[in-house]
Amino acid sequence: MTLAEIREEIIDILHDIAPDEDLSELKDDVTFRDQLELDSMDFLDIVMELRKRHRVQIPEEDYGELASMQRTVTYLEPLLKDVARVS
């Protein structure tokens, strides 16, 4: 997956997790928590969805890397570079 595809994938997951939120103006360099109503269970949902969709295992000590879109995409890029996006 390219960086753009990873971003699309995360947006897709966020649509499921936070269906009441408008994601069209999400700022990549601002933390999710400062823009969206997300709690710790929601972040676990992001981790679980990545695990289910792509068998990506994210260790607990790396959860902080999912704080914003920019950091998430950067963190996932090496893990997903050989993975095709499932539409």
Binding site: P19, D20, M41
Partner: peptide, 8 residues
């Protein structure tokens, strides 16, 4: 309920 509440 919000959609998120229903989902959760």
């Amino acid at each position: 309920q919000k959609r998120k509440e229903v989902r959760r």
